[in-house]
Design a protein around this nucleic acid. Sequence first.
DNA 1: TTGTACGCGTTATCAA
DNA 2: TTGATAACGCGTACAA
Lengths: 346, 346
Amino acid sequence: MWKGDQAMKKMTIKDVAEALGLSPGTVSKVVNNSGRVGDKTRKRVKEYVKKHGYVASANARILKSRLSFTIGVIFSDISHVGLEHPFFASILQSFKTAVEERGYEIVFIVSRVGENELTYYQWCRNKKVDGVLIVMGNINNPNIQEVVQSEIPCVSTDIVMDNLQSVISDDKEGVRLALDHAENLGCEHITHITGPTSSRGFAERAAAFSREMEERGLPLPDEAVEIAEGFGFTSGYNATLKHLKKVARPPELILAGSDELAFGIVRALESKRLRVPEDIMVMGYDDIKFAKHFTPSLSTIRQNKEKIGRLAAERLLSAIEERRPKRKEITKVPVELVKRQSTGRG
Amino acid sequence: MWKGDQAMKKMTIKDVAEALGLSPGTVSKVVNNSGRVGDKTRKRVKEYVKKHGYVASANARILKSRLSFTIGVIFSDISHVGLEHPFFASILQSFKTAVEERGYEIVFIVSRVGENELTYYQWCRNKKVDGVLIVMGNINNPNIQEVVQSEIPCVSTDIVMDNLQSVISDDKEGVRLALDHAENLGCEHITHITGPTSSRGFAERAAAFSREMEERGLPLPDEAVEIAEGFGFTSGYNATLKHLKKVARPPELILAGSDELAFGIVRALESKRLRVPEDIMVMGYDDIKFAKHFTPSLSTIRQNKEKIGRLAAERLLSAIEERRPKRKEITKVPVELVKRQSTGRG
DNA sequence: TTGTACGCGTTATCAA
DNA sequence: TTGATAACGCGTACAA
């Protein structure tokens, strides 16, 4: 089906109208199921359109109408975390699948168009996106604040803010499950190593950890919460070494803020001749695909990434289609304890 | 900066023109650095535009002009492999970064718009994308054939076809490096377990493997190449068990078609009380992030994902901007041997 | 520089 | 009711 250099001339609504001896307006109505059109005409148009594969130009349509069937995605502004981050990639994937099923598509919001630097909000206006998903963001980013406070429907699977719908894991419950598990294993001296608290998840888990430990009457010295410098393996590794230097005696269990941190934590412990789980236990958070293939396989709190993405899509599309006023609303998605070798014999 | 429900009225080129007592055409020229405009006028316009943050509507612009500064991405059609696949996600990430630096953005090509089923080509025409990246595709997919044979510039980081530019790893070299390594380790009985050969990478590695083994005079019974059913851990696991049943005695080394397969291979061997690397060695392919954290850490052939993505971006953008006729062209990116524990003592 | 036709649909208005 | 007409959305490009 080689078309050579010259493209097949594109069929426009006028071509269709002309071929059928109708006006463009009438064809438009049929295509969009709007307005009144006679039955036989409607049928003629539908058949022609189907047969010849006419589809309205996306750009012309968006230019005129309210909706673009496009969702802008804010993926990352902080710390070179990209599509390669398994947790966020999973969420994005399931969100993408869900909106595509409803005829929407996703585009990544960037802060420039051609040569112009735009704010996220300007970008959205410029592209007329129908809604915005914040997969990962920082509440102090003025760009994000602007979008969230604007008239554009938004949903986040990460941050929580005024006027913003969020679909997130129940982190309090996650920490509770983790500590229940720890207590069942007979652990009392527990350390929490988490990532930068500029990230909501990390901050929330750290807060929940402290509160829970107190309520349970477990020891909570200052060193019991260690903040790693980044998101990845190396950050977890380094934070662990730092922590071990601070304490007289290693804790019985370390709860990590994420699986990736946990991987680094485990290796750091091993480098100090501490065996996991025999000498010290480790728990992760997220249950990314690799957690079960790690050695020792990682006990963790599973976040339901698929559900988070799907629910976020539902919430956002309803907000778009019902045009209701924006308000803060948090949907908590249950988490689940996954027991593996790193806290026992697997 | 709460804007409430009613959006700030959008500023159009007419508003700008009116405010400055000029015509829209003049403003357009300034904004696009095209055509002749007087110096002082140009300056006045630039200042006004900067101050008030006017940006041309993307849709109106695309509607009229040749370029959309948009690249369509074909990510996956086969086997539920999504953004979660670390190898392809890495390539896409670096491609995305590279094109964004040049003012382009990416959109995922899907096969429907609203209610209409479109072919990829129709979709591209409909959206006026400037070019297409095929991150992963099947050469027998008519949708892909149509795009590739069309007038739209394309580049692939996966498949190889007529009229298509490809930026891929030098798999022959990769297999050669792997077998050199194997021979240096004294291995002669080598098995290759790879994924579905509908995927170019797997097919090419399998072919290279057979050829190289023959040239080296190493044994190449039929069972020496085992095709797994899928891309992931489980496929590797099952293929290994199947292979072990076929052979009288396990090979000395297994070369996997990908790291993910290799993970499954290793665990399958262990389940049969074969230690890696003591009893049998295993090599992966790709060097995804996790390969070095696996136990045993995985020796592998590193594909330069970052470079593949970046080069693909360069090739595609040149093709777009120079509008040269399409032809087949393969850019091979060097690979690298990474020695770790799974083939020695690490 | 400006005027204006044009790109391609959508939608409000109007005639039949 | 049915369908046609025309203005509109927002820029671009070319003639004047």
